[in-house]
Design a protein around this nucleic acid. Sequence first.
RNA 1: GCGAGAGUGGCGGAAUUGGCAUACGCGCCAGAUUUAGGAUCUGGUCCCGAAAGGGGCGGGGGUUCGAAUCCCCCCUCUCGCACCA
Length: 878
Amino acid sequence: MGAAAAPRGIEASGDMPEIDYKFTDIERKWQARWRKARLFEADERSPRPKCYVLNMYPYPSGVLHMGHVINYTLGDVVARYKMLRGYNVMCPMGWDSFGMPAENAAIRTGVHPHEFTEKNIAHMRAQMGSAGWGYDWRREVATSHADYYRWTQWFFLKFYEKGLAVKKTAAVNWCESCATVLANEQVKDGGCERCGTQVAQKDMSQWFFRMSAYAERLLAGHETLRGKWPDAVLAMQEEWIGRSEGATVFFKVEETGDPLPVFTTRPDTLWGVTFMSVAPEHPILEKLLKGSPHERRVMPVVRELRAMGTSEKELAEREKVGVFTGFHVVNPVNGEAVPLWAANFALMAYGTGAVMSVPAHDQRDFEFARKYGLPIVPVILPPEGLDPAAMTCAYVDPGTMVASGPFTGATNTEAMPRIIRWLDEEGRGKAAVNYRLRDWTLSRQRYWGAPIPIIYCDACGMVPVPEKDLPVVLPEDVKFSRGGNPLATSESFVKAPCPRCTRPARRETDTMDTFVDSSWYFLRYCDAANDTAPFSPARIAHWMPVDQYIGGIEHATMHLIYARFFTMVLHDLGLLDFDEPFARLFCQGMVCKTAYYCEKCKWLPERKVEGGTRKGDAIEDGVCAACKGPVRAEMTKISKTKLNIVDPDAMIAKYGADTVRLYMLSDAPPDRMQVWSEDGINGAWRTLVRLWNLATAAVAQAPPVGTAIPADLDAENRALRRTTHQLIESVTGAIEGGFHFNTAVARCNELVNQWRAMKDRVHGVVLRETLETIVRVLSPIVPHFAEEIWERLGHEESIFAAGWPAADAAVAAEEMVEIPVQINGKLRGRVMAPPDATREDLERAALADEKVKKLLEGRTVAKVIVVPGRLVNIAVKG
RNA sequence: GCGAGAGUGGCGGAAUUGGCAUACGCGCCAGAUUUAGGAUCUGGUCCCGAAAGGGGCGGGGGUUCGAAUCCCCCCUCUCGCACCA
C-alpha cells in the first residue's frame, strides 16, 4: 500500500528511495470519501438536468480484462465530465449473469451456476472499486436473479399476447453424442467442439420473436440516430436488416403445376433465366421427388447438400454445388421451361428459398452454369454486344434489353419500374420488398437462463403462465452432466398443473437467449428495486433515453439491434413513450498488444521468446525458447488464445488506477485501436510523477483560495494565463467533439511545460490559477490525483463540486499573432500582427518584410491572398 | 465476393476540417544531479546538405494562390458479414 511508488519494474522494492506520490493511499482515501459523500448516487429529486451515462454491462467471468478497462474508464471519465458540466449523472452497473460459461463450469466441476456467478460478481465488483470507477450501486442488477428474470418472463408474456412470440421449427446444429444443440462457434470443421462427433442439422420447434415485422421501423429509426451513433454501426445494421426492392415472380413446376414463387431484385433479367435453384431444405423437393423416378438419384445428393451446416463462414468458403432434380419450372414471362436444381447456395431462410438463375448477368450463376454446362442467354447488351460463348464473366452493367418480349429495345435500368407494373397487371408477379433480417430465435436448450413461462397441457395445449405465478424459478434439483438440457432433468420443475384446467401438464424447458436479458437492463436501472412492476413510468420518464451509451463495436448488430427492437415493442405495448433507447452511442477501440507466433509451437508468451532485437515494445526476429524456430511479432487484439493478455489488477497495483486511466486516454482517441505497451504506461506514470512534484512544491507557495489576480502582471505571466484560458477552450472542444481526451492531455502538458520553463518567475496568484486549472481539467481522467491536489490547495469541497472551469475569452485572446508569409505556397517568412489586423495591414506588413522583399526582387506579384488572422500567400510569376 | 474504416518521423499520434506538416508523449542522443538509476532535471531529435537551399503525410494523377485534408486511378492493412437471388 503506501510504500514507495514503483517506477518501471517488476514490483516496488524497499531499497528504492521514496517517491512522494503515494498513489495507493491517495486512491483508497478518495474512493472512501466518494462513497461516504454518495457522489455517484443519482437522485431524481435533483434540480439539475439529468444525464444517463451507460456502459455495456459485463458477463461476470470473474476477472476484469483490458477490454473492460478501456470501456469503463471511458464511461467513468464521461460521467465525471458531465457531472462537472452541471448534470445530475446516473451511471449504473450490473451483470449479464446468465449464459454458457457458468453452465459449462457446473458440468465440468459440479459447482452450481448460481454459486459460481455470485462469487465472480463479488470479485469483479471489488476490482471495479479499486479502478476508481464510480457507480450508483443501489441500482445494480443481475439478470440471473429471480427479481430480475421475473420481469424478463413478464415481457415474454406481453410479446406472446401480442403475437410477437411464436413457435416455429428451425434447423439447429445437433450433436448426437452430447444430445445437445451447438452454437455455430461450438462447431469446428463440421464436428462438435467437445467430442468431435459429426454435427447434424436437426429440425426443432423453437421460440421466436417476430423481429422481421419490425425491419422497416428499425431501418427508419436510423434517421434519428444519424450523427449520434458511429456511421460504421449504422452501416452494419443497415446491411443486417438488408432491405431490397424487387418483385416476386410466379413460376410453376412444369410437370405438376406446383407454384414456385421467386423473389428477385432483377426482374429485368427474367428473359435470361436458364435454370432455377432451390435450397436443399425446400419442402417442394420432398413433394416432387417422393415416388418419382428421380428420387433414388437426387435425394441422396440433396441430403448431402443439407448436411453441410449453417455456419456462415463455411457457407462463404465452400464450393457451390447442386443437382438437377429432373423437374422443370415454367417462366411466366415467356412460358419457357427451364431445369430445376437443388443447390447449396440457395438459402431457405431468405426470400422464398428459391433463386432464379441468370448466368449472363449474375456472376455466381455464371460460374455455376459454366461448371454444370448450363446455357447462358444474354438479354441485356452493351453497345458492342455480347457473345455468350466468349464471355469470361457475367455482364452486370446497364444496357439494352433484347429478346425480352414487350421490353425489347428498352434500357434495363429505365424499364425496371414498368416491368414490375407489367408483372402485376398480367398476374405474373408483383412488386415486393424483401429483408434479410430474420426472426429472433430466443430458445436455448440450457439451464442457466430465464425459463420461458409456458405450460403444455394435453387438453388445453400451450398455456402461458399467469402473471401472478411469476417468476418461474430455476429449480435446484438438476443434474449437470454432459448431454441434454439440465432443466429437463428436474422433475419438480417439469411437472406442473395446467393453469387453465389444473390437470397435470409439463413446463417448457427452453430458457431465453441472454440477449433478451440485455434488451431491457438499461430500463431496470432506472427503478431497480421495484417489486410490483419492471419499472415505474415516472422513473423511466425521468432518466430515459440513455444519453450516452458506451461499449464495444462487436455488439454493432446483435445486442444493439435486439435492444432497439425490444424498446420498439415496449413502446407499442404502451409501456414506453419513446422507441429508440440510446440517444448517443460511442464505440471504443480494441486493446491490442504485440503477440508472438512460432510456426511450430503456435502462440507464445513474451517470456518464451529468446534473442532478437527489441524494437520499441516488440521483440523482432527472436527465436522460440522451445523449438528454436523463428518467431513472428504481430500487433493484435489482447486475448487469451494469443497469450498477450495484461492483468488490470497487476497494473493498478504497480502504477495506480490514475496512471492506468491516464494511459488509456492519453495516447490515441478512444475509438481507435489502443496499443498496450509497457513503455507507454511508464510514460503516463512519469507524467503524473512530474506533475505531482511540481504541484506539491507549488502548493506551498500559492496564496490563499480566492486571492484576486493583480492587474499589473508582466508579459510572461500574462502569456501563461493566456495559455491557461486557451487550454480550457480547447479541452472543452476536444471532449465535446468526440471524446478526444488525448489532445486534452497534450494541451495540459503544453501548459505544464510553459509553466516549468518560467520556473520561479510565476506570480503566486497565477501559479494557483495555473495549477487549479490543470487539475480541474484533468480531474475526470485522474480523479484521485486531482482531488488530492485540490484539497492540498486549500479547498474543502470535492473538486467534482467545483464545476468545469470557465475560460475568460479576454484573457485567452492573443495580444499579437504570428502570421506566416508564403510565396507560391512555400513558407518564406513571418510577420507579427494584432489578431484583428485587416487584409490591407497584413498585405502591407508581408510585402515590407525584409526576407520577402529580397525574394520578390525582379519578380512580378500576380496576386496576394490574405486570410486575416491566418496567413498571407503571395503568388508571383517568373 | 460484399460493406465499413484506416495509411503522417524509429513508435502512439497532432494538424482549429482547404492555410506554418510532425503539437503532446514514448524511444533515442548528449549533459547535469545522484552511492546507484529503468528516477529527476536541461538541451537535441522528419530526411538530404557544411551552408544556402531542397525533399517530405502509402503510390500516381487532378482541382486550387495554397491539399495530410477535396476529386479520379492504384497499392497495402484492419474490422464486420447471413452467397442478399
